[in-house]
Design a protein around this nucleic acid. Sequence first.
DNA 1: ACGCGCCAGATCGTATACAATCTATGTTTT
DNA 2: AAAACATAGATTGTATACGATCTGGCGCGT
Lengths: 252, 252
Amino acid sequence: MVASIELAADGLSENTVDSVIPGRFVLRSARGRAIHASLLTAILDHRLAPGMRLPEDEIGALFGASRTIARDALQALAHEGLVTIEANRGAFVAHPTPAEARHVFEARFLLEPRMAALAAERATAEDVARLRAHALEEHEALHARDNRRAIFLSGTFHGLIADIAAQPVLAGFVREVVSRSSLIVALFWRRQDTTCERHAHEALVDAIERHDAKGASGVMESHLVDLFSGLDLSERAVRPASLAELIGPGQG
Amino acid sequence: MVASIELAADGLSENTVDSVIPGRFVLRSARGRAIHASLLTAILDHRLAPGMRLPEDEIGALFGASRTIARDALQALAHEGLVTIEANRGAFVAHPTPAEARHVFEARFLLEPRMAALAAERATAEDVARLRAHALEEHEALHARDNRRAIFLSGTFHGLIADIAAQPVLAGFVREVVSRSSLIVALFWRRQDTTCERHAHEALVDAIERHDAKGASGVMESHLVDLFSGLDLSERAVRPASLAELIGPGQG
DNA sequence: ACGCGCCAGATCGTATACAATCTATGTTTT
DNA sequence: AAAACATAGATTGTATACGATCTGGCGCGT
């Protein structure tokens, strides 16, 4: 039951939501966009877990809309790879396999270092200021132990850099793979410390401020290596062993 | 009026259609997928011109489906950047601006040389055979002056290479930018000879057969430079002068 | 006790109805 | 005659109705 999760839009600042939404828009109605935005942010900050059902009725009702609208929003999310649609069974939060996780990160390894380099070449003083403000927000979220916000912001940071690179098509692709990474982290993350990540983001802003394209590209690449190596993509991870192993033969 | 254009599926071999359709599927009904496939191929081979209206009624009726189904298919195409949806006005074949054309090609310049290199590393004998067969088909289409088929096949060739690179996420991105390039060519192409292109495709297959990653990457890059330099993205191109200039004051 | 089939509830698939909006044509006004 | 307005037709926006399909549970038979 999805209704138990807070999906209404009032919990989110409009700015942060906008920074995740793809530029080219396919949903016509305001309510459709609201549903899209709410589900998107709920997936990005791990309120909605991979595999969770998303019944059209319930989602529509949450936003005072009919199934027609909810379906459109779910179809849009399916196109972004965040929702899976099974015929006659409905929509579910996507549940990437280890192989899909690898493919998503392979795409990030190709796209994002280049975006960081372009951002370093093109960033204005205001761009750098915006990045710094964002990094500060991340810092505060971590300090306040607000993990959801921290994980959400660390994703939108990558989207901001893609915007600065001023390549809208590639920026859209980056947003997609970053969003999907959020589901991958939810499923396969095995490490606790996220401090390395914060330092990486700060180092990235520094390189961009220096207009050091090579440096920014390198920092981004090693940052992605860090993220990727924090995943456990062994087969063990996807199937939680056997029921026997989970319950244990002598500890119930 | 769109009905005057042959959109039914019987004119196309199933194989070639499949090779254009994105892997992850969002449309549930068979008729929805048929509409999607037909509109897609009609756009790719320039039967549907940029800016053309796509009324829901008419499209649904063509396939014996209701507007509901047609809407879903149009939304999917909108997500791929091939169709533009305007609120309360309906769907149109996308009509990219020169700026958008540049952004699409910037994405291709980043993605496709890498895909060519990966394809060269990974291609099996069967992959090479498939590419050769495809290049031969292109050759035949050109020889038969079947321009529509030639332009269609030259697009799917790039999709095939992306498949061989075995990176499904990136391959999906490549398919999107290649499809959009078809609209860009329809609007901005200014050159007649496509022979250079055929040679480029053959050189690409040769490099891939040699497992020459650097070579394949280089050939792909110069092939894209060729394609891009064949476009006229000046502002003059986008607005076809004035109505007076088109009709002429003294030749009716 | 276990497996098999059946039935009810829930959910999705699709068409259709009606309201809202837009476009184009023709009319009025200045 | 040109511009503003009004109206009719066409097209989209959205809800809803009804049939199809799936899921889970109950009862039956072995």
